[in-house]
């Protein structure tokens, strides 16, 4: 009886041990094989240089990851971001030994990437060009890099991740606006919505804006006429041709409302629309020779 109980005890213990080992082994094998795609460390932030292109096929890699250590890919293969410039972080926050939280870093430094003139410059915009559909992303050193004293920030650009096609492109966006097929990054208008010019649109934006004279509110019709006249040089420059030589196009100035006029606003944006009023795709920009 006693021996039987002891035997039963040993058997129970053996089953318990075997069961535990079995479960742990099966789990480990399952995990080990599943972990085949575990994350790699990638390349250092310092290698994320201007003009290099990177993958961010998963939206959270783009919008919810503080660093970007993905190795560069050729800009002619599908990719999501392109590094426009690097800069050295300065200020009291950089004295922190542990990398500060994402919210604080972004609040302090993200605006350094949202630099309109610098993005224009990177895109190769000339004074007549208005870009659209570009998002800027601030990427910081990884935790381990920060702990080693790296304080390099990277500004990456992508096309609009919320656009129907997403941010995936297969071309470099550096000096993109110098290309004849640059409509994907030019500003156009479809109804009241702002779109890139590769989408169906009613009018295409030019740059810079023009100012009307400081006079009392002239009424909407007069304001339109004044705007049209003031926009002629800007539009001519954009088309690299006399607007009079393009009977298919009309100037569509967008000036202030009466209320805005009363507050001193005189700025007019010069749009170029189709004379027929129908929607088109592509750009009317000239001078790409």
């Amino acid at each position: 009886m006693r021996g039987g109980r002891r035997q039963h005890r040993w058997r129970a213990a053996a089953i318990a041990v075997a069961g535990t080992v079995g479960v742990l082994a099966a789990g480990s094998v399952a995990l080990a094989s599943a972990y085949a795609g575990a994350p790699a460390s990638g390349s250092p932030t310092a290698d994320n240089r201007a003009g290099t292109c990177h993958l961010a096929e998963e939206p959270l890699e783009l919008v919810a990851t503080l660093s970007d250590t993905t190795p560069p890919v050729p800009c002619t293969v599908p990719h999501q971001t392109e590094t426009a410039w690097q800069l050295q972080l300065t200020g009291p926050l950089t004295a922190q030994r542990v990398r500060p939280n994402p919210e604080l870093l972004l609040a302090r430094f993200a605006r350094l990437c949202d630099d309109y003139p610098r993005i224009r410059d990177y895109l190769g915009a000339r004074p007549q060009d208005a870009y659209w559909g570009i998002s800027a992303w601030a990427k910081f050193p990884s935790r381990s890099e920060w702990a080693r004293g790296v304080r390099l920030m990277v500004c990456e650009l992508s096309t609009d991740p919320n656009s129907p096609s997403g941010p995936t492109v297969s071309y470099p966006i550096a000096r993109f606006l110098r290309r004849a097929d640059s409509s994907a990054l030019r500003l156009c208008r479809a109804g009241t919505a702002l779109v890139t010019c590769d989408q169906p649109h009613d009018a295409e934006a030019t740059s810079p804006t023009v100012d009307l004279p400081v006079i009392p509110w002239p009424g909407p019709a007069t304001e339109q006429a004044m705007g049209r006249t003031a926009c002629v040089p800007v539009v001519d420059s954009y088309l690299n041709a006399d607007i009079a030589s393009r009977p298919d196009l009309v100037i569509d100035p967008e000036g202030p409302t009466e209320m805005q006029w009363a507050k001193g606003v005189r700025t007019v944006t010069c749009w170029i629309a189709q004379g027929s009023g129908r929607q088109v795709t592509g750009t009317v920009r000239g001078g790409f020779a």
């Binding site: 795609g37 990638g42 998963e58 959270l60 250590t69 990884s142």
Partner: peptide
Amino acid sequence: PHHWYGEACGADGSGEPYRSSQLWLLSL
């Protein structure tokens, strides 16, 4: 399939590893 790099995989982009027994079920 996707190749994740660096901090993109981890606890909400912080780079810290996130462990859960749910990984067993997911790997299964």
